Amino acid sequence: MMAYMNPGPHYSVNALALSGPSVDLMHQAVPYPSAPRKQRRERTTFTRSQLEELEALFAKTQYPDVYAREEVALKINLPESRVQVWFKNRRAKCRQQRQQQKQQQQPPGGQAKARPAKRKAGTSPRPSTDVCPDPLGISDSYSPPLPGPSGSPTTAVATVSIWSPASESPLPEAQRAGLVASGPSLTSAPYAMTYAPASAFCSSPSAYGSPSSYFSGLDPYLSPMVPQLGGPALSPLSGPSVGPSLAQSPTSLSGQSYGAYSPVDSLEFKDPTGTWKFTYNPMDPLDYKDQSAWKFQIL
């Protein structure tokens, strides 16, 4: 009977010793046993002879290597770790002494450095960015050149030099007046198309007034536009458009034309069986010896 009264063996659950049927240790109110408190290391007290050895090595170098620390530790009968900690504390003490010396050398008012006064946003004049500046400075420094007289040679050079070769001289006033084509001369031969040399188009003023001019072949195509416009036809070669000034309004060009419109200028042929003959000019830059190549039959 006494065997049943004795408590059973101890069981360990999660490293906790349980005594038989008792489960009081598993209750929430019972805390787990805490780790033992780490003991504080005792402070090391250095003797005068030990301090002399350490100070002598510190005077040589503030960062001794492990071999120098072990050698000193053997002399003063201390572990190497204590020597390492002593050098660490000695360097910190040396830095603190240097900072105190710097503070003593500075004057009393030198510690508080005078800061520059901050400028207020409204006091300083700042350039306004509302208006974009002129990058080319046209509004201040540029002045347009004065327009020359209508009959000045410089204007003629600016007008005619675009179309004339570089080897030719500017046309005088008398020749510029001949550039304007007359109405009857352009409409006299509506079906004849003559190819003149390129030099005649640039230099010869008579080429624009003769039936064999460069633009005589364009007349049949330009004249039928007159009834559609409801007024006189516009002429690209009329009046002052080739003269001194090219800047004319469309209203000033509306009254200039080749001449009176005639039914002869239409595109319809009077004789459907007729042929169109292209007159060959020996001055043509295209060297075609066979003139029969310039004739064709309209079917």
Rank of each mutant, 00 (worst) to 15 (best):
P7M: 11
H27F: 15
A73N: 13
R69D: 14
P9W: 14
P285F: 07
F46C: 14
P205Q: 02
G20H: 08
S199L: 15
S212Q: 06
Q297M: 14
S19G: 05
D265V: 15
D290S: 13
T61C: 08
K120F: 02
L25N: 03
S49T: 04
H27Y: 13
Q96H: 02
I162Q: 00
R119K: 06
L253E: 01
Y214I: 05
L218N: 00
Q291D: 00
P145V: 07
P205V: 09
T159F: 14
Y142T: 08
T154A: 03
S152D: 02
P135A: 02
F278C: 00
A73F: 15
S185C: 13
Q84C: 07
G110N: 02
P250Y: 14
S143M: 07
K270M: 10
P107W: 08
G122Y: 03
S216K: 12
K93R: 07
P172W: 12
P125A: 08
G217M: 15
P236Q: 04
S203K: 10
Q105W: 05
S203D: 04
L286R: 12
D287C: 12
G259P: 04
Q39D: 09
T279K: 09
N281L: 14
K120M: 01
P240F: 13
P232A: 08
C202I: 12
P145R: 07
R37H: 09
S81P: 05
G8H: 05
D140E: 06
S210C: 11
R176I: 10
L136K: 13
T44K: 14
E173T: 11
I298D: 00
E80S: 08
R82P: 12
E168Q: 05
Q96K: 12
E80T: 08
M2S: 01
P79F: 13
I162N: 00
G8V: 09
L136T: 05
Y4L: 05
S203M: 10
L246P: 04
A59F: 08
L267E: 00
Y67S: 08
K88D: 14
P272H: 11
Q111K: 07
P36K: 10
G178R: 12
R95C: 15
P127H: 07
T159C: 10
S249V: 07
D219I: 11
Q39L: 10
S139F: 08
A192D: 00
D140Q: 08
K120H: 01
V160A: 00
P64K: 14
F87E: 13
A121P: 09
P64Y: 14
Y191H: 01
P272K: 09
L286Y: 05
P220E: 02
S206C: 10
K118S: 01
L25Y: 04
A114H: 02
T279N: 00
A68H: 10
P147E: 08
Q39V: 09
P232T: 05
H10C: 10
T129Q: 06
L229V: 04
T123H: 06
G137Y: 14
G110W: 03
Q99H: 09
L246D: 01
K270W: 14
S164F: 15
P33S: 08
G148K: 10
C94Y: 06
F278Q: 00
S223N: 02
S262A: 09
V157W: 12
P236W: 14
L246Q: 02
S139T: 04
V242L: 07
G20S: 03
E52I: 08
T44R: 12
